[in-house]
């Protein structure tokens, strides 16, 4: 099913808000190497107890959604960045965080660990090299 994000993401948010867990396949490369877009499935739940390192679905501008990792929490402001990005943060408020990832599954049913990626978040200068190796060896 190929539907634009602005149509199906709000539906996912509605279901999560009702207390359901939702599985879907995100697209894009911005969460490599932790999530392979168009391949891995993620499980989303209500965004409770947000913490730095959580992967969340957020609306960072009207109808502009990202599934990225939390890099900072300051009061109501949430700072996000994609694991596969070399630079560029996004900012939104806590109320714009729609869901939190609790599980990542590869197509063969294997679960990937959902970590806070502490080391990855602190090695921005090495990302370019690691991601290059990842693209050549794991995809």
């Amino acid at each position: 099913m190929q539907l634009p994000n602005e149509i199906f993401i709000p539906e996912i948010a509605r279901l999560v808000n009702e207390g359901k867990q939702v599985i879907f396949t995100p697209t894009g490369v911005s969460m490599r190497p932790y999530i392979e877009g168009g391949v891995d499935n993620v499980t989303l739940v209500q965004p409770q107890n947000l913490a730095v390192g959580d992967i969340v679905l957020a609306e960072i501008a009207p109808q502009h959604f990202v599934l990225h990792r939390i890099y900072a929490l300051q009061g109501e402001t949430v700072t996000l960045m994609g694991d596969g990005n070399l630079q560029g943060e996004e900012h939104c408020s806590r109320s714009n965080v729609l869901a939190k990832v609790t599980a990542i599954h590869s197509p063969k049913g294997k679960s990937k660990p959902v970590t806070k990626a502490w080391l990855w978040r602190h090695m921005l200068h090495l990302r370019r090299i690691v991601l290059k190796i990842y693209r050549h060896t794991c995809i």
């Binding site: 199906f8 539906e11 996912i12 279901l15 359901k20 867990q21 939702v22 599985i23 879907f24 396949t25």
Partner: peptide
């Protein structure tokens, strides 16, 4: 039955885990 764009989505509202990859339009 939920309207979704030009189509409709059948969602299993009675279950706690909804697989969006297996949705029926």
């Amino acid at each position: 039955l939920r309207p979704l764009g030009n189509e409709y989505l059948l969602i299993a509202e009675s279950v706690d885990l909804v697989n969006f990859n297996a949705m029926i339009t």
